[in-house]
Nucleic acid binder design. Structure first.
Lengths: 121, 121
DNA sequence: GCTAGACCTGACGTCGACGTCAGCTTCAAG
DNA sequence: CTTGAAGCTGACGTCGACGTCAGGTCTAGC
């Protein structure tokens, strides 16, 4: 599929998809006139990218990790070993972020619970 | 205490503290010569700010929430009611963010577990 | 009262993930 | 073969939370 359909299918903008390619995260094929051609595999890659971006990873780091996520049968598969260090490091960072978020959520809930019942919604 | 000591005590930069004041998050007193004077209460406020920033809230939103967090005895107390809507909204956003992070962490752990045991650290 | 260090107020720079605009090319339909 | 939609490549703009530099002021010790 071309970039327009890919973007709609993923719920992203054209700019975003081009940006991901610019950062080396996706490498869609090119047609005669130079137009990008996205295969299903590329869409899966983009979804992985989105997941990792949402985790707070930067595009540079993701670019390193992606080769370790080559799909065999639909889910991430191994590949890299030397990146294990960085991976666990990122995982720990994410765990910390989760803890921070839970702490903040607790704070908010304290306020919510304490606030006189009013316009809740 | 003056801004330097406050910054050291909080582990933040001078710029950060001035920035928080600029955004209306803290209002330290001023001395004769116009120098900022941070009371313990101000430090607590800054810590709240940090917690909420870590939760992904912006300084503008935090500026609205802070009045609802006036400490009575050390922990957040109620105050605002009409903000309940925004509060629950932010809480839900945070819950979503946590879910995203957990998903991403799961992805990373899958890769880590699948990777041949190597330099793990 | 002199000096060094701590502060003050602008104001411009940064970084990351895009948005947006400009000008040109390619594709699909009639 | 024309035309409008869809793509393409730069390249500058944005937003948020600060970093950093410049140039003047305040404070504390001697």
């Amino acid at each position: 599929m071309r970039i327009g359909e890919a973007a709609r299918s993923l719920g992203l903008s054209l700019r975003t998809l081009r940006y991901y390619e610019e950062r080396g995260l996706v490498r869609p094929a090119r047609g005669e006139g130079g137009q990008r051609w996205y295969a299903e595999d590329d869409l899966r890659t983009v979804r992985h990218v989105r997941t990792l971006l949402a985790a707070g990873l930067g595009t540079a780091v993701i670019a390193e990790l992606l080769p370790c996520m080559r799909d065999d049968d639909g889910h991430p598969a191994p590949a890299c070993a030397e990146l294990a260090g960085r991976l666990t490091q990122e995982r720990d960072r994410i765990s910390g972020a989760i803890a921070d978020l839970e702490s903040a959520r607790g704070t908010l809930e304290t306020i919510i619970a304490a606030a006189p019942a009013a316009a809740v919604g």
